[in-house]
Design a protein around this nucleic acid. Structure first.
Lengths: 155, 155
DNA sequence: TTATCTGCAAATTATTTGCATCCTG
DNA sequence: CAGGATGCAAATAATTTGCAGATAA
């Protein structure tokens, strides 16, 4: 899913131009970090990733930039299991598999879900704009771990 | 959705007995507040509601109790639009309509979603245990407001 | 009784903000 | 050059925790 980062940077430039905002290195790097990671990183992870290329960036700039990118529809804010807000750079329609053991969020697509008509009950509530299915379960990695619970990690 | 609160209080007693924990007034009232509200309240709202019947309850007890109830599968933790964690007392399979304007979360059910088979892509990620569809859009109330935007509330 | 809970206050953790300086356009 | 952006440090907001007294079983 590490998408076409160049195209996404173009989108950033476009959004900045439209907003009369500036295309800074920080904005580029934060966007790159979120888009290139398939882990749906939280602000702290984004800071860690961006610091590899730009050691001087600060935490508050990361927060400000993430909000800026979200405001201009370049990334989404999602919530996982833990307390921290996480960010999603995948702008294509997709759904989430959320591991209830490790908190990992993985993307998958489903035309069936995208296309299915919503029940009356939902239509009555308002005008729907988008939808996302969240599937909760145990991911492959944790599943393997779990099988060995009795050997290496009680509870 | 204000369900059968008596049955839910029985569940609480059962869970407490099982855990060797005590059935306190605070636990009863916090559970009642979450179950009887269809608004998916955050901790602050729960505090406000519970204080009507129990003026001395403190914020930290609310937090501790919400965690206790979640741990024993009596309520769920959900994330809405804002930053705060919200709680869901509806234990039946259901889905959410989330208003992107006011943040209101409303429940609806859908057998179609509950029963549909997941795509290969999702099955490959791990063992799915449950699923929930999140529909984002504008709720009826905000829809009405929006129509009058130009008259009463610019932006 | 007696181990568990609660309320209080203080501690953490996550996120936001004021301000002087810096950098993009 | 000039106004928006960054980095620093300090402020808020949300949530958690230690402890002594209160309470359910």
């Amino acid at each position: 899913m590490s998408a076409d980062i160049e195209a996404r940077l173009k989108d950033l430039e476009h959004a900045c131009r439209l907003a009369g905002a500036r295309v800074t290195h920080q904005r580029r790097e934060v966007l790159r970090a979120v888009v290139e990671s398939s882990r749906h990183p939280d602000a702290q992870s984004v800071l860690r990733i961006v610091r590899e290329r730009m050691p001087t960036i600060s935490f508050d700039t990361v927060y400000r930039t993430l909000s800026f990118l979200e405001l201009h529809d370049l990334i989404d804010r999602v919530q996982g299991t833990g307390g921290r807000t996480r960010f999603d750079g995948n702008q294509l329609a997709h759904h989430h598999f959320i591991c209830t053991m490790c908190g990992r969020i993985s993307d998958f697509t489903s035309e069936a879900v995208d296309r299915m008509s919503l029940p009356e009950a939902a239509l009555k509530l308002g005008i729907a704009a988008s939808r996302q299915l969240q599937v909760y379960g145990v991911c492959r990695a944790c599943e393997r771990q779990e099988g060995h619970t009795y050997e290496n990690q009680e509870q």
